[in-house]
Computed example of a mutant assay.
Amino acid sequence: MTITTETPIEAPRTASPADVTPDSPAAALVGMFQEVTGELEPLFEAMEWAEEEIEAARQRHQETARGPIWHSFSLMTPTLDRLKNERLYRIHVRELLERVDTGRDTRPATDAEMMIGLLESSLQAPLTSAATCLYLRIFARALPAEFHKTAGTALELASYESVHGPQADEHEGWLRRQLTQAWRAPEV
């Protein structure tokens, strides 16, 4: 017994790149996917950098079990847009991890956050001499090799500190408090 049909059965047709025209629904979906991917990519990069820094800190501090450093991932959320820069973000994360390891408060601003705050301020108006001293101090503390390679040969930070240090200390305390992240407390 043979069964015949008059119309052949065709496999479902899938969309090809030629079907995606600028005004097609497929183009809208592709655009939305690209937009979401573009938004999420920096977050995934930051997550990867944070995981690398957490692992390095665990090794540095010989944390073998799931201790405070291992549990600190939620503290590593970038707080400022410029923390998408890998170098600044890693400085930020390392400082937070050192605070976690030593039991210090993780809520006050990190050196990276303060550098960004001073940079943003300098784009609005020139920094005062004391604020410049603070910026140089933080730069030297956060990136010592780069500081000495660039600014360190042209100026003596100790001279700047002798004149503007006390006022820079006040600025540093104020800036740390202003940029404090109340949510950034380790899980207990």
Rank of each mutant, 00 (worst) to 15 (best):
R90Q: 05
R60C: 10
R137M: 03
R82G: 03
L175N: 08
E39Q: 13
A26T: 05
P166D: 02
A18R: 09
P12G: 09
T110F: 03
W174H: 04
T21L: 13
L80A: 09
L143T: 12
I116S: 05
A185V: 15
D169C: 01
M1E: 10
E113W: 06
Q34E: 14
Q34A: 14
P8V: 08
T132E: 11
E10V: 04
G67Q: 00
A46C: 09
E52M: 15
R177F: 06
E113Y: 05
L134R: 13
S74K: 15
R60S: 15
T77G: 03
D19V: 09
L118F: 01
I69K: 01
P8Y: 13
E86S: 11
M32T: 13
P68H: 09
E53P: 02
P25Q: 08
E98I: 07
N85G: 03
F33T: 11
T64D: 06
A46S: 14
A27T: 02
E6N: 13
L83N: 03
S122I: 00
A125C: 01
G165W: 00
G31N: 12
A142G: 09
G67T: 00
S129L: 08
G165F: 00
L80T: 02
Q62K: 15
H164E: 04
E63S: 02
L136E: 03
G67I: 00
G152S: 04
R87F: 10
T5G: 10
P25T: 05
V188K: 08
P42H: 11
T102G: 01
W49S: 09
G103N: 02
T2I: 11
A46R: 15
E41D: 15
A130T: 00
T5R: 11
E6C: 04
R104H: 09
E187Q: 12
R66I: 10
E170C: 00
D169T: 06
R177W: 06
A158M: 07
E41Q: 15
F33A: 13
A158D: 14
T150R: 03
E146T: 10
H71G: 02
T102V: 01
D23M: 06
E86C: 01
H61K: 08
W49I: 14
V100I: 05
H171G: 00
R99E: 01
L179W: 07
P144K: 06
E86Y: 00
M47R: 12
P108E: 00
T110A: 05
R176F: 06
Y160N: 02
S121A: 14
H92Q: 07
D19L: 08
S121R: 14
W49N: 09
M115I: 08
L75A: 08
R94I: 14
A11N: 10
A154K: 06
P8R: 14
M76F: 09
Q178R: 13
I116N: 09
T110C: 01
R87K: 12
Q62G: 14
R94Q: 14
P126Y: 01
V93R: 06
